[in-house]
Design a protein around this nucleic acid. Structure first.
Lengths: 178, 178
DNA sequence: TCCAGACCGTTAGGATCCGAACGATAGGCC
DNA sequence: GGCCTATCGTTCGGATCCTAACGGTCTGGA
C-alpha cells in the first residue's frame, strides 16, 4: 500500500485538485507521507513479528510500556501508549486474561491501579523485542546514517512542537495535550 | 500524549533496558518517533478541525480519497486509505447514511461498487480541507524549508521501500503488500 | 469534622478495524 | 454451453478505540 496509485500519482492528483485554493502543498506532502509511512510500518510489523505472537500493535505497545516502566499507573501507561484510558482498560483486560500482565492496587491511594508484567510477559518481550527491532532496522535500511539521524530529528521536532502546544485540552484521550 | 515522560527520558529508559541485547537503537528511535509523530498529528487534527465537522480521521481520509479519485472502486479506495475492505464497508455505510457519499454499481462488471461524493460531500471537503491543511502547515511550522524537504524525502524512501518489498502478501488488508 | 470539587479507573454505547468465510459475478478453457 | 477458478464487496465475530457519564477515593478549606 498504500493503494494502487503511487506517491507521485497521488501528489499530482492533489496538486491539480487544489490548484488556486491557497494550499500549503509542502506541508500536505510531509504530513501525508508521514502518516502513510506510519501505516506501512504498523501494517508490516503486524503481519510479520506480531502476527506470529498473536499480538496487535496496540497490545505490543502496552506491553512495551509496562516493560519499560514497571508498576506504572494506568493513566500514565495510557498516555505513553497514546491511547485513551478507556481503551487501555480493555487491552489490559485482554492481556491479563492471557497471563501476560498483572493489575495491582496502590495501598497509599486506592484510586490507583498499577501495571506490571508477569514472568511470562517479561519472557515474551525478551524474546520478541529483538525480532521486532530487526524489522525496525529493515524498515530504515535504505537510509544512510546521516539521513536517518536527520529524519529522527525532524520527527522529534514535530512531536515536541505538538506536545508542548496549548492545543485543545480535551478531558481525557491520547492527544498531545494530555 | 504521549505520556508523562519526555522523549529523552523514554530513550534513556530504552537504552538501559536493552543494553547488551544487540539492539539497533537508531532504528528503534526513528520508528518510535515516527509513530509517535503520527499519533500526535492524528490526535491533534481530530481534536481541532475534524471534531467540529464530526468526522473521524478515517472518515476524512476516505472522503479525501473519493474526492481525489471520483468513481473509485472500493478495493482501490480501501488501499488508498490504508484500511481493509471490511473496514471500508462500514465507513462507507456511515458516510452514506450522512449523505456525504454515494455507492453505485458498475454496469460492465456487476461485482464492482464505485464511490463518489454527493454535492453535500463535495461542498464539505471544499470548505473543510483548507482548514485541515492549515493544521498541517502548523504541524511542520518549526521546520525550515530544507529540513522539511529532507523529512519528506526520508519518509518517501521508507514508504517506497516497504511498498515494493515482497512482504507477507496477505489475502486482503491494508498492508504494504496490498 | 465535613463536604464540594478534583481526580482515578471503569462502564456504556457506538464507530473503526481486522482476518476469514461467504455468496455473487466474471473469465478462461474445453 | 458448462464448469473451474479468480476476484469482487459484504458479512461475521472479536478486539480496539473513542467520548461521556459514572461511582469510588482523595483533598483542602469552612
Amino acid at each position: 500500500m498504500t493503494g494502487h496509485h503511487t506517491l507521485s500519482e497521488t501528489e499530482r492528483a492533489v496538486a491539480t485538485h487544489l490548484r488556486g485554493l491557497g494550499i500549503d502543498l509542502t506541508a500536505q506532502a510531509a504530513v501525508s507521507n508521514l502518516y502513510r509511512a506510519a501505516n506501512a510500518i504498523r501494517s508490516h510489523v503486524s503481519k510479520t513479528v506480531l502476527r506470529e505472537a498473536d499480538l496487535t500493535w496496540t497490545s505490543f505497545v502496552v506491553l512495551w510500556v509496562v516493560w519499560m516502566w514497571d508498576g506504572i499507573e494506568t493513566r500514565h501507561a495510557a498516555a505513553e501508549a497514546a491511547i485513551s484510558k478507556a481503551t487501555l482498560t480493555g487491552v489490559v483486560r485482554t492481556m491479563e486474561r492471557r497471563g501476560l500482565l498483572r493489575r495491582s492496587g496502590d495501598p497509599d491511594d486506592r484510586r490507583l491501579v498499577r501495571l506490571s508484567l508477569t514472568d511470562t510477559g517479561r519472557q515474551l518481550m525478551v524474546e520478541l523485542f529483538p525480532r521486532f527491532n530487526a524489522e525496525e532496522s529493515y524498515i530504515v535500511s535504505r537510509l544512510s546514517r546521516n539521513r536517518l539521524a536527520e529524519l529522527t530529528e525532524g520527527l522529534r521536532t514535530i512531536v515536541e512542537h505538538l506536545e508542548t502546544a496549548p492545543g485543545g485540552k480535551s478531558a481525557d484521550g491520547a492527544g498531545p495535550t494530555a
